[in-house]
């Protein structure tokens, strides 16, 4: 059974013409998929449909065989992590520790366990030195890593990254690509939405091209 499945999905934004039309798509839980296409072709929309953030005009998106529109965002978030184009929209607290821990604290999880999880994630991303930092003072690249940390702490099986290379220099792109390799090696699945062909070509997997509302492989 495929992990994410699009069945005959069409989508348009209010009062605009059809952006995606009758898409069929099937993605495995540990595969690498790249989505490319020009600005405005619907790449981000595809990602948001796969997350259930947007609802299709017609057709269905299935996550592990279940209609995603019947699941809460919280539930989807525990299965798929989503990195927004602008990581700043998903950093909530003033300190790195609080940002990674506040959800668990609201859920009354034990402090010991929270700290253990935070340490594991920071270590995985090689940002243990940021543990006590203030989120305002982080650079763009560091904010992106923190946003990914906030995603990974939920232990999702799959990650969708929307334009993760925007604003990164060559050195930071290399770090990101090493991180992606590491995630794949850990058995996670990934979908990367990007117009940076050079970056995408670093990885082996499916490349989907969106153009004129259709997907080409």
């Amino acid at each position: 059974m495929s992990f994410i499945k699009f069945e005959n999905v069409s989508f348009n934004y209010q009062h605009q013409k059809l952006l995606l039309s009758e898409l069929e798509l099937s993605i495995d839980s540990n595969s690498f998929t790249a989505v490319t296409g020009p600005n405005g072709s619907g790449k981000t929309t595809l990602g948001k449909l796969a997350m259930g953030i947007l609802k299709p005009l017609s057709g269905k998106v299935l996550l592990e065989g279940r209609d995603i529109s019947t699941m809460s965002l919280g539930k989807v978030g525990s299965k798929i992590g989503y990195l927004f184009q602008n990581p700043e929209v998903q950093i909530f607290a003033n300190t790195v520790i609080d940002d990674l821990g506040f959800v668990m604290r609201i859920k009354n999880i034990e402090e010991n366990e929270i700290n253990k999880k935070i340490d594991t994630v920071l270590d995985f991303l090689n940002i243990s030195d940021l543990r006590n930092s203030n989120t305002f003072n982080l650079s763009y690249g560091e904010k992106q890593r923190l946003a990914i940390a906030g995603i990974l702490i939920n232990e999702p099986q799959f990650l969708i990254l929307d334009e993760p290379t925007t604003g990164l220099d060559i050195g930071r792109k290399k770090m990101l690509s090493a991180l992606i390799e590491k995630l794949l090696a850990a058995g996670k699945g990934l979908m990367i939405i990007s117009h940076d062909h050079k970056f995408i070509n670093n990885f082996s997997g499916k490349v989907l091209k969106i153009s004129g509302g259709k997907i080409y492989e």
Binding site: G37, P38, N39, T166, G167, H195, H197
Partner: peptide, 11 residues
């Protein structure tokens, strides 16, 4: 100032 970063190849 990094004006090309957010736009696609054609742009």
């Amino acid at each position: 100032d990094e004006s090309l970063a957010q736009i696609d190849a054609d742009g």
